[in-house]
Amino acid sequence: MSSLLEVRDLEVKFGLRSGDITAIDGVSFELDPGERMGLVGESGAGKSVTGFAIINLISKPGYISRGSIHFEGKEISAYPPDKMRTIRGNRISMIFQDPMMTLNPVYTIGFQMIETLKAHRDISKSQARAIALEKLKLVQMPSPEKRLAQYPHELSGGMRQRIIIAISLLADPAIIIADEPTTALDVTIQAEIMDLLQELCENEKMGLMLITHDLGVVSQVTEKIAVMYAGKIIEYGPTETVVHHPVHPYTIGLIGSIPGSIEPGKDLRQIPGMMPTLTNIPPGCAFNPRCELAADICTRQTPVLEEKQNGIMAACHMK
């Protein structure tokens, strides 16, 4: 069976006056129907750009320079704008990072929900309203009727994120791409939203692409993980295996730095140094300056993503 979404060798560049900068360098992965995948990495690793690239909504001056994005049996990476629109918010929905900034402040919740439906379905306003209400109930929004008439600023961050989740559900999409959906929220609410998202995906058989820097969250929600570093996927495999038996030194470092991953009383490990910026990625393996295992070859040759053990793919010369 072919995958729902298949990304092959995706490359995204940003055209600057001083020359193009590669933000995403040959990323490949796939997502089956109803599958939940985590895209993990530090900020600047290119995970958000990958998410936006799928629905071709990279901020200018970014553009897809190579690769293919196959979705529901069609190549969508080169879709013209109006064809792309039939996918955005319809077959693939997005949830943004900061719910305080995502909703338009001057329109009511109802307005913003109904317009989304009407953009994709040929239905009346009252039908759209009924669907909007149903989805608000689905995200366990208290008194949903009242919400439709409210403006975004009348609601708390957690409530707004629920509304955004409801909006992303409106057209019963095949995939939801959630870009750090809980980072801007209070810790207590983070878990609630994450549980809701997982439950919805399971019940509605929706695919989820969870973009986050938080390995802890990913390990609870997803079935599959791709770890990104400096624009490349460096480790890719089933969540269970990656979390418990990581291969790449970077992933090992990441997991070692999660509180609770090691015995109480011991110091948390941290990876020395910082991720390189896109303009000065070191030759060879981009991780080599921070790597304990780095050898001569690591500075000369870029490792490729290949199968290592237990079904994990990793890009490392030393394993």
Binding site: T102, N104, T116, A119
Partner: peptide, 22 residues
């Protein structure tokens, strides 16, 4: 440049709607 305009695009709205309404 705001997030809510980017979100309006992500919802699949038409350029006319994003520009003239949002």
């Amino acid at each position: 440049e705001t997030e809510y305009i980017k979100y309006a695009w992500a919802k699949g709205l038409s350029p006319r709607r994003v520009w003239l309404v949002h």
